[in-house]
């Protein structure tokens, strides 16, 4: 193959090497002014962030809002704090981002006003799209109860629960994100589910 026959390569990020750049390399590139680095990080993590915040949103647009908030808040901290931090630990940015996402969702739900005075037609519940009004109301009522029960968990329990149930991460990965042992993550999860059962009671035991 001659030089002219080689396929043209797409423009590369500043710090791209032969391997896929780590999150931490992309954060450094972003802080150095590489705009493509931000996009690469968003592309890499936005599905997981969406999974973590969508429980607290009523509509797809609101879910997207919370994803956007999570990235902007994570990067606001990155610009302020990361230059002074050691980013040699792989996974540090991802762990930080996911914890921000869990808290963005939780804090969004804390404002009870966002859950009132909405007509049934305003609800956009994927699972209930084909259901009748009664079923949709019941589905939304259950979602509210679960959100309220989650709000009563400790921060660590809520983080473990969100990463496991909403993020669908294996417990080993949950543990890495939170900087705890896998056994510790499982114990927190067990107590979270027990506490949810106490609060949800008959609502879930049919």
């Amino acid at each position: 193959m001659t030089q002219s026959e080689r396929p043209r390569r797409a423009p590369q990020l500043t710090l791209v090497g032969p391997r896929t750049p780590s999150d931490e390399a992309l954060v450094r590139a972003h802080l150095d002014g590489d705009r493509a680095a931000f996009g690469a990080l968003v592309q890499r993590h936005q599905r997981l962030v969406l999974a973590l915040v969508r429980r607290y949103a009523r509509t797809p647009d609101e879910s997207a809002d919370l994803v956007q908030q999570s990235f902007l808040r994570a990067f606001a901290a990155a610009g302020r704090v990361f230059p002074r931090m050691r980013l040699s630990e792989e996974g540090a940015f991802r762990a930080w981002l996911l914890r921000v996402a869990v808290n963005v969702g939780k804090n969004h739900a804390r404002d009870g006003r966002r859950w009132r005075l909405e007509p049934v037609e305003a609800l956009d519940l994927p699972a209930a799209e084909s259901a009748g009004v009664t079923e949709r109301l019941e589905a939304e009522q259950r979602r509210r109860l679960v959100r309220a029960a989650l709000d009563a968990l400790t921060r660590r329990q809520r983080e473990v629960f969100a990463l496991r149930v909403d993020g669908e991460l294996p417990f080993a990965d949950v543990a890495r994100v939170l900087g705890i042992t896998e056994n510790n993550a499982k114990v927190h999860f067990h107590h979270a589910v027990r506490r949810l059962r106490e609060r949800l009671g008959r609502e879930v035991e049919e």
């Binding site: 797809p60 997207a64 956007q68 149930v165 589910v193 059962r197 879930v204």
Partner: peptide, 30 residues
């Protein structure tokens, strides 16, 4: 415990949610 695990799971991410996310163009920068 198993009833709780079944009850708290969310439905899969919908096409509408993905479309809303893509239209936001978050990756284009703050």
């Amino acid at each position: 415990l198993q009833s709780v695990l079944a009850a708290v799971e969310l439905p899969p991410v919908s096409i509408q949610e993905l479309e809303a996310l893509q239209s936001r163009r978050i990756g284009e920068g703050p």
